[in-house]
Design a protein around this nucleic acid. Structure first.
Lengths: 345, 345
DNA sequence: TCGTTTTTCTAGAACGATTTAGAAGAACGA
DNA sequence: TCGTTCTTCTAAATCGTTCTAGAAAAACGA
């Protein structure tokens, strides 16, 4: 059973290996009769079709696109936003009979080459929320693998599918400003705070480009407001809760809390509930992304078409017909019950 | 920049290709000085390390494990249960510097070989909730790829990590029986109902082994109860809602509804809420899996350690030290407010 | 009937690495 | 000093395909 190759089959049928190869890949290059005879013999010999690695080597196509996530791979699945992106990407991948290769980003042994990004047999890569300058991006570039990012990069020849982070955040900022909020806390993803106490950051310490831009957008739309940047850890429900707890239990309570992702905002919502605070009345809460749970919770947020984002990335990566290599997706402010006028003193 | 291979580097440095290969893979097989010289030259030439496909072909290791999901790949991400499994698996994969290859199962062109399962360069495969007898499983077997399933198969030499479905469901059944329920509706995943009207099924029509076993377990524990099997479509929130609506709006209302997954049960919960029904008082509702949202919703359910399941599958696939190839994971009945005594007439 | 096109198939060279077996020289123990 | 063992490096075979030319036969048009 083992060791059955194209050659074995070719010999058994009495044709050349090329012909057997064609039987699988170019059915119109040989007579139907012969093709069927070859396939039958292959079946009989237990030949499972052309070897994937060999085919990939020779043809230069791996039949898979890589997906790069920040942080731990296991972690990526906790945010419905990331999952939505993946779902959109998967949809297109499915259409092109291509697999998705999820690559862990953790191991930093770059020179050694034991890196997953180094090892991966992929034709292209989707880069999801990876901070600019990450070593993995360089590896990808070195390997000459076409990539599409979900962040607008600085290089003009980079492909991306993104939103206008500044404008999107500004929409939300205007809404909050109109409601009279001047004391705002922004909850962000931060590695430092993970596992420890919540931290208060400056804009420069944020790290993620998209987060920075959003904060800038908020500030732009509410020039008179005082923005504080707080993190309770990685981008997750628990972190949002921790960050909000820290803020709510301090003397210096804001009138509005903005989570830079809905999962964090929902965590903050939980912290408010525990303290008997009603969102939209006692304190305004807003998020970002508009994940399904946001609607159920009545969370004001900025909707971005995440599944479409995934689809668009997939098209750029896989569809030769896709011409636009830089795509700006629309966003929309969704006002729900969690935002209300700032209480007057 | 293009066309730089091991050979190019070898020629540039003035050593044999084997030595360059060793510089990357077996650092202790050559002097440190030479190794550094090689690596430096490689860098200079823009060589990005050994080609993944070539390495995979020659060494016979792809550095990736495949993940087979039922249904549409895009779809798999909508259930936190599936996502939890993936997270556990990813954790172990990360540890072994292995990537996860998500394969779409849809295309059925098996003979043609344009199949993702056929094409995929993988060392092993995790099979998640794929109904027995699916053609993809045969392809995998033909290719001689070791696989671990989340269902206990019939073959004694198959590897799996599963739960005792019958016993787990029986625990829940006993709980319901003790509460006096005799009219029970079970909500299941079913392709037929997808996109159309909810359907009522017989046990034989269910299809998924695990679902069948759970229903058997319920029946076993509540011999006097009448079990009806209803499906509102694929395994998802919306399907559970649709199925429950169908049942709640009929003349023949049950006293208890059991979702065979929490997402479905939560969908049913929504349908109840809309109708002003309080779970645990007007009608008993129970689920399966104990996803995070279940706790928040007060849903009685059967907990299974899904992340551990993913981890265990990963270990069997990747860890040579893992000896047990068949693992039964524990389950636990979690009673919350959504279940209560059956109303007396 | 004769050139021309089409169909069907093949030989042999890649693809880019890893592996095996072994050579050359250095280091070692007695 | 001599045989033995290490260390360091190499030559050549091999992994299993697909691809590029092109050959042989069949079909075609005039």
């Amino acid at each position: 059973m083992a060791g059955v190759t194209l050659k074995t089959v070719a010999k058994a049928v009495g044709v050349s290996p090329s012909t057997v190869s064609n039987a699988y890949n170019k059915p119109d290059q040989l007579s139907t009769a012969l093709r069927e005879r070859i396939l039958a013999t292959a079946q009989e010999l237990g030949y499972a079709g052309p070897d994937a690695s060999a085919r990939a080597l020779r043809s230069g196509k791996a039949g898979a696109v890589g997906v790069l996530f920040t942080d731990k791979l296991a972690y990526a699945f906790s945010d419905p936003y990331a999952v939505g992106f993946l779902a959109g990407l998967a949809e297109v991948a499915e259409e092109f009979a291509t697999s998705l290769l999820l690559m862990p980003l953790s191991s930093t042994d770059i020179a050694g080459g034991s890196n997953a990004v180094q090892q991966a047999a992929i034709d292209a890569a989707a880069i999801f929320c990876v901070p600019g300058g990450h070593p993995a991006l360089e590896i990808l570039a070195n390997r000459g693998i076409p990539a599409v990012s979900t962040d607008r990069g600085d290089h003009p020849d980079l492909s991306w599918v993104a939103i206008d982070e500044v404008e999107a955040a500004a929409q939300l900022g205007e809404h909050l400003a109109r409601l009279g909020h001047r004391e705002v806390v922004v909850l962000v993803d931060n590695a430092q705070a993970a596992g420890g106490r919540p931290v208060e950051l400056t804009l420069d310490e944020v790290g993620y480009t998209d987060c920075e831009l959003r904060i800038q957008g908020l500030q732009k739309a509410m020039p008179d407001a005082r923005l504080r940047i707080v993190s309770g850890g990685h981008n997750a429900f628990a972190s949002g809760m921790k960050g909000a707890e820290y803020v709510l239990d301090s003397q210096d309570r804001p009138t509005a809390i903005v989570g830079l992702s809905d999962v964090q905002a929902l965590g903050a919502l939980e912290a408010m509930k525990v303290r008997g605070l009603t969102p939209g009345r006692d304190l305004t809460l807003a998020g970002f992304d508009d994940i399904p749970a946001a609607a159920a919770a009545g969370l004001t947020t900025v909707r971005q078409p995440i599944k479409d984002k995934g689809r668009a990335v997939g098209r750029i990566l896989l569809d030769p017909a896709a011409t636009d290599r830089q795509l700006l997706m629309p966003t929309q402010l969704i006002v729900r019950s969690s935002s209300g006028p700032a209480p007057k003193h």
